[in-house]
Structure formats: structure tokens, C-alpha cells
Design a protein around this nucleic acid. Sequence first.
DNA 1: TAGATTGTTAATCGATTAACAATC
DNA 2: TAGATTGTTAATCGATTAACAATC
Lengths: 208, 208
Amino acid sequence: MIKEIKKISQRVIPRMSRYYRILYEHNGKDMISSKELSDFSGYTAAQVRKDFAYFGQFGCPGRGYNIEGLKGSIRKILGLDRQWNVALIGVGNLGIALLGYKGFKDQGFEITAAFDNDPEKAGRMIKNVEIFSASKMCGVMRQKKIDMVILTVPRESAQAIAMEAVECGAKAVLNFAPINLKLPDAIKVRNIDMSIEIENLSFLISKG
Amino acid sequence: MIKEIKKISQRVIPRMSRYYRILYEHNGKDMISSKELSDFSGYTAAQVRKDFAYFGQFGCPGRGYNIEGLKGSIRKILGLDRQWNVALIGVGNLGIALLGYKGFKDQGFEITAAFDNDPEKAGRMIKNVEIFSASKMCGVMRQKKIDMVILTVPRESAQAIAMEAVECGAKAVLNFAPINLKLPDAIKVRNIDMSIEIENLSFLISKG
DNA sequence: TAGATTGTTAATCGATTAACAATC
DNA sequence: TAGATTGTTAATCGATTAACAATC
């Protein structure tokens, strides 16, 4: 039922995640229409249908989409039908907060190791995650079969550490450092830059 | 020198923030070319020049852009030439980490109050920020002339609390709750949804 | 001057929206 | 059946890239 992928706009994936969340808020209901998904998501109904159409036919003309079925389909599409082993690198304020972030764990992203170059931190457990010395990175990452890393280190060290993580087997990086990482093409990167977002707000409100 | 704004693509502002950061990494140098900015940012040189052209003429043919001058211009464009008073709502793990986040303070975003509906927290100082009971929100926000709020509350309460913050004078919301907030048109909103970003990575690596 | 690089226009590319036949 | 709503095609809209005259 899930069509093999033609050319997917890079922007549909975040929307799929959004729809998936909305479906979870409708447990118990049977069907949902693109119009309803539009109301909850803020995207147009045409966009909703187009987005789903990239992956297959999930709806029923005249009736809408079966919520349980669609949830399952999106779960498969996004790769949420399995556990992902995640390591967090950089156990500072933000890193610690993310160690306990429910939004990751709930969707199968399990942080099974964390690294910091402060020897004080190595050996401790924080939010139930063991902290290792950065020097142990490769061994631990391979042993724990880490798929992806969350990078919460200072900007200055981000590039070198990201590269090291890749050499230790990471296939994707969720990067919180405000820098454009240069990594091999096969490595997937998403950036979260909180300053950029807040600066967008100051731009918007200061131009009136 | 800063042109009054025709129709700015919504995507140029985050790029302007990015350029601004890069300029800061080149203190001491005199000029920088769109080609160099391209190398550091990952955007094309044509894109760099086009982005700047939305706001005016900042460069010098044959020589590039004066770093100090450009820095100042972007600072004005983004509204970073003043202090912004920010309140944080929802003093959980993530909220506490953001109270101490340097990336905000360094650019003039000063978190001058935080709110939580846990009465245990009210009255405490965390990372040098006073925590108030959520019931005091309007009084404190008006007294401290809060411009924008950072919203780190659970999804279920986000909509109601965001609306309350707007009624208390907030003109912009940096929203970490995984929900599409419905607020008056004049209110600016940016969403940071960390689960969406990590799900994007699992999509990318699971389709190979 | 020759070489470098801007600012801008035109061409291309990609994403969103509108419209509607098909179908439940 | 009549009403609702999908999936898809075509039309529109917007953003990026290429190209180059202007200029330092």
C-alpha cells in the first residue's frame, strides 16, 4: 500500500510528523477528512491530500481516512515502527534537558549513551542515561549500535566531534550547534538553532 | 541604506541570521565575498547576494562586503540593535535549560521572568531568573514590558496559555509545544518541534 | 589595465493551490 | 440516490539559480 517513492519534496516529512501527532489526538474516532486535518494542522486540505499521495492511497472517497490505518502507514513511512539507538554528545544544560525529553522516547528514539569531555561527568547516570568520557566514544557507540547522535556541544567543537561520531558509525546528526556541519553526503543532518528562531521573531515584530 | 522592504521571502530571515553568525567568526578580517559566505553557510553565492539585495546594497563590486558594516546592517534588519524582554512559561527540564541558554542572551534576548503553575517553584530564582506563579502572569508581564514569550509547557495547556500570554501583551511566541497554535493574526509565532526534526532523520535513514 | 565581484534580470526549478472526475 | 470527499492533473505561485553588465 505504501508506494515506492518518486520524488518527495523535502517539506512533506515534517508535515507528515504533524499529521501523525494530530491523529494521536483523535484516538477513538474512526475516520478523519483532509478538511479536518487542515483545520488542526493549519495546512490546506489540498496539501494534506497531496502529501499523502506521495506515499500511496490511504483514503476513501466520500469518507476520508481511517485514523488507525493512517497512523500505522505514517509510522512506517517515518520509520517509527522500530527502536532507534541514539547517543547524546555534550552533557550541558541543554543536553541534560534532552536526556529526559519525552518526545524522543515516546516515538522510539532511545538515548542509550551520552558523552562529555568533562571527566567529572563520566561514570555518572543522569536521567537514567550513563555518561561516558568522550574518549570512549567509538567503543561505546559501536557496542550499543548507535544509529544517530544528538549534538549539544559548543560551536567551536561541533564540526570535529560530529565527524568523529560519523567515524564511529552514526548515520544521522541532530545538530543544536549554530554551525553548518560539513559531513559526508550519506550522513543525514537536521539543524535546530534556537537563536535563529528567536531572531526571526524579533525581525517580525520590529518591522511592525 | 536599508531599503524599505518589498516582498521578503519568509526563508531569507533564517539565512540572514546564519550570515550574521558567520560574520562574527571573521572578526578582524576586512572584507568577505558572497563566495566565501557561500562556503561557510552552504547556500549558493547567488542566494547570498540575492538575500542581501532584499534589504539594500551592502557590497562593493570587485571587493565584496565590508564585514563590520554588514554586521551592523544585519543587526538592524533583524532587530538585534536593542534589548528584548522575554518571559519563559513552563519551568520544566527544557524550560530550565533555556533559562540559561547563552544564545538568547548574547543577542539581546533577556529572559526577565519565568512562570510555572507549580506553587513549589514560585518565588525561587533559577539561573538568575525569578519564577512567578502562573496566576501572576499578566501583572508581571506588563510591569516588565515583556515583548515575547518562550513556551515550554505541555501540549495540552499550550493553546490556552499562549492565548493568555497574548492577552498579557506578548507580541510573539517561540513555541516548543507540538501543536499548531491559533492566535490573532498580528501575533508572530515560530515553532521548534524537536520530535519532528528527529523523525525527519529516521525517515531519511530508514529509506536508505 | 585586468581581475574580481557585485546587484539585478531572466530562466529555471520546485512547491502549493484549484479544480474536478471518480467513487464511496 | 445525493452528498461528501478522495486522488490527481493542470494552473499558479514563489523561490533559487544562472548569467552578465556595471564597477571597483
